[in-house]
Design a binder for these strands. Sequence first.
RNA 1: GCUCCGGUAGUGUAGCUCGGCCAAUCAUGUAGGGCUCUCAAUCCUACGACACGGGUUCAAAUCCCGUCCGGAGCACCA
Length: 494
Amino acid sequence: MLANSLGYSVSNNEKKKRDLILPDLPLKNKDQPLVMRIAPNPNGPATIGHARGIITNGEYARMYGGKFILRFDDTDPRTKRPLIDAYDWYLEDCRWLGYNPDEIVVASDRIPIYYEYAKKLIEMGKSYVCLCEKDDFKRLKDNGKPCMHRDQSVEENLGHWERMLSGEYNEGEAVLRLKTDINDKNPALRDFVIFRIIYEDHPRVGDKYCVWPMLDFESGIEDHLLNVTHIIRGKDLMDAERKQRFFYNYFGWEYPITIYWGRIKIYEFGKISTSSIKKGIEEGRYIGWDDPRLPTVRALKKRGIDPIAIKNFVIGLGVNRSDISISMENLYAENRKIIDNRAKRYFFVNDPIKLQVKGIDSSIEKNVHLPIHPSYPERGYRELKAKDVVFITGKDYNKYMNSIVRLKGLFNIKIDKNEAFYVGDEIKEDMPIIHWLPSGLKMSVLSPEAKYDGLGEEGLKDSIGEVVQLERFGYAKIDSVSNDGEIIAYFSHK
RNA sequence: GCUCCGGUAGUGUAGCUCGGCCAAUCAUGUAGGGCUCUCAAUCCUACGACACGGGUUCAAAUCCCGUCCGGAGCACCA
């Protein structure tokens, strides 16, 4: 209301600002400090999908002055086997994105706590050890019928439970189930499993335990113990809430506020799965987790995508229940806004063609000065020493065969077969301006689609670690110089 | 099959809780133009959407019902 009376430009600003923040969060009560968490399985570094979770949760915690917890839900040493390095990788990725967790919790460190709550539930008569064959139970359950173990006494259940823990049962012989409603109209909720037996070394805790909690149980207990106030998670986990509410009710706990979002699919990558990436690396199809073809946070980092760009991109997605399908172009657009100002300009001649320029005095060397950044002349100039030989890209060579082009900053030439003729210095309107090099460093640019080889400007070797703009080619991050002097760069985007 | 979600321009999003200020926001994209010795950046203009059908109402993107389309869960995975 006040903004309106202040005029047009103010309300405009407000609109622009609002785009960069998340929608308000429903709050239970204002005095309760907000606690958000992310709960990944540590089986690889963070992908863009995870970045969405890290940024959204971390940003909400920041907005409300709350706490941001990173919890590793590593309770399956077999099917979702954790990768020992991934714990650190994931944390690094969080920090790089700008969201350092206030607290880190590892579920595999806290198994005894889950056992305590399991025991309480048994004693409350809300949980029982089921010795059915899996398929037998399913048949009964699908018909809304209890199995024979459901009515065991607390003492019997405690006995079975102790024997589970001490390793007297084989895998598959016994599970601990939560008593829910065997006639619940949603079959998924009927007396679901909360603990099962797995004899397999865990990468962190070895063979210390053979009874492991299911995610729904572990996660639900932890969210309560950590005083989590808001959970944001994929809508595939909606049943998890319904399951967890059963034992929240038994314990008299209050369930956190939940927000669900749909699946995100990125055009360029399709569905992202950490396990399929891992397989690709093992099979040698990717050079590592930061292979520029991968949708991992570390690959984006290597390609020169700024974390703020990722943040803006993610926040623009909002928190929505519908499945979305978005292009990397949107991320690139965000990144371009950030990096263009600071990206030094250089020439990179891909697929170089050597041209002998006729019609000039070959003994004269001409010094060409080009701005490091055209919008900021105060940043200085780079110098190219030109004689009568230039390299231009194969693409330009083919495209402009028999036509006149401007070699940027130098002079005009007419391209003929493997040579060119000097045709003046005047820039004429509509004359194509192309980049070129008198000579250069061997250079290759790795992009998600291809590897581009060619020549790079000398100054590039002083820009290791920087994101530069290779004129008329695109933005790239200069990674390193190889042993034989080749510049290795990773393509960011156009 | 059962259970549960969703559907605003090419894409993403605001608006939906509390119907009117919505001839629907912003971004991206595409097209055209200005500037520029980069096909970048920047500036200007244009394009483009409430899935469909009923109902309630003076008034519906917003509430109700149905249809269609899309997705998820139904594991001793996370």
